[in-house]
Write a protein that binds this DNA or RNA. Structure first.
Lengths: 235, 235
DNA sequence: CACGTTTTCGATCCTAAGTCGAAAACCTGA
DNA sequence: TCAGGTTTTCGACTTAGGATCGAAAACGTG
């Protein structure tokens, strides 16, 4: 069955990364503006061609390190394959899309043609990249409920209020600090560092600093849900 | 950046399907035995090369329909990309793996060289196909908790006991019929057909027939978990 | 030092899953 | 026909964990 594998039209495999972070109470994605046709001026996801000696994850990490200055992503995972025959003009290109996450506290230098954009207010995007971005955001939202992917969004140490703001921005609805605190604590993924954050200049009780106990993102054993507030039960 | 895409070494993209079903209280996967080198005699997943005019999902459905007689899979979804440079000998082949599901009641004709194998007791498999199969099983298990993928495993109508056996086999641990009934009913995905199944020849109260209300597999809005019974809470 | 502000913590409510056991409905064989 | 075995079904109870609220704690400022 694999006897004449090389006898067909050429096919290119590229990797693309939707790198997300939370900033200014919104989810942002890293995009760069195309300088060449096709789709000049439109914004597109970083990535590029898969080399022959690397797998897709190695490739996406390399290209992110090369093209934009992001060496310490807090999380990377496969998202999906995008393979519509006409997804890009010209020769066939199949893409493996990734979800990347950067903590709120780091602010990596990015090249001139690169910038963060709010996912809720995207500029004109190239090819099918808009679909990929939205898919990445949905994945992030879903995983906040039953994994420790929140640890990839948050800085190394934080107050519960800060963490609440991060979760709220990522999920798109207000979550309670009390409940977030208890849910994560009960799961055993949150622990106090012992340190205290200085209060804001408006006063207020100084907040305790917390950190995630886990290294890396993993599924919570008995996972449960952080539900949107409102919609009550139905009969 | 995409100026000289065609100037590199050839790359082949294949699609592979781990088609699962529940039978004889086990999860089974459809495999075919290789007749050619490399890996002659080993068992491998159905699939094949991606054509230039189709996306990966179209491709995997076509190849399943061609190579093995499975035209009505109850569910198909992307699993992951497998792309280790040396995953197959010879020219580079990147694979998009799929999870497929067949209901317990249909028994499609399969070619001579093709057979169902228990996932818990696999024969010698080719390339990295064992990893793919196990990944597919894990995905199926996880999704039983928070999606309606059970509707893809089950026949069109069934008794709660039958459904319990299906869930038990797929999950690998005994689930309670009472609880399963209540959980699925509360989610609104289960409804009685009104019909009654004849009792077994050992007697017993005749069981009511049920059916899933949903067409297709989707995530339950407020999803929760079917947890393994035993392990009690920790202090 | 009264007042506004923010965090923190306990108490309570509620949904939904896990468990148990009895009743219902059927068969078979004496 | 009826006693005993079998399987399903249903209700009641327990338990886990998320949602909500309000009071207390701990800080600034005027």
């Amino acid at each position: 069955m694999r006897s004449h594998l090389n006898t067909q039209a050429p096919l290119v495999h590229e990797v693309l990364a939707a790198v997300l972070r939370v900033r200014s109470a919104t989810v942002q994605v890293l995009l760069w503006q195309r300088a060449l046709e096709p789709h000049v001026g439109r914004w597109s996801l970083p990535g590029g061609r898969l080399r022959m000696d690397e797998d897709v994850e190695t490739s996406v990490r390399r290209q992110l390190a090369e093209k934009v200055d992001i060496r310490k992503l807090s999380h990377v995972e496969q998202l999906a394959v995008f393979s519509a025959p006409d997804r890009v003009p010209g020769p066939r290109v199949v893409a493996t899309a990734f979800l990347g996450v950067v903590p709120t506290d780091v602010d990596p230098d990015v090249p001139e043609d690169t910038a963060w954009h709010s996912v809720d207010d995207l500029p004109r995007t190239a090819f099918d990249h808009r679909d990929i971005i939205l898919r990445a955001r949905d994945r992030l939202r879903a995983k906040l409920s039953y994994t420790t992917i929140g640890s990839a969004l948050a800085p190394a140490s934080f107050t519960i209020s800060q963490l609440r703001d991060i979760y709220s921005a990522a999920l798109g609805y207000r979550v309670s600090a009390t409940n977030l605190q208890r849910v994560l604590s009960r799961r055993g993924v949150l622990e106090p560092t012992g340190e205290i954050a200085p209060p804001g200049r408006a006063g207020g009780r100084p907040a305790a600093l917390y950190a995630f106990t886990c290294n890396g993102v993993h599924v919570t054993d008995a996972f449960a849900v952080l539900k949107p507030p409102s919609n009550k039960r139905r009969g």
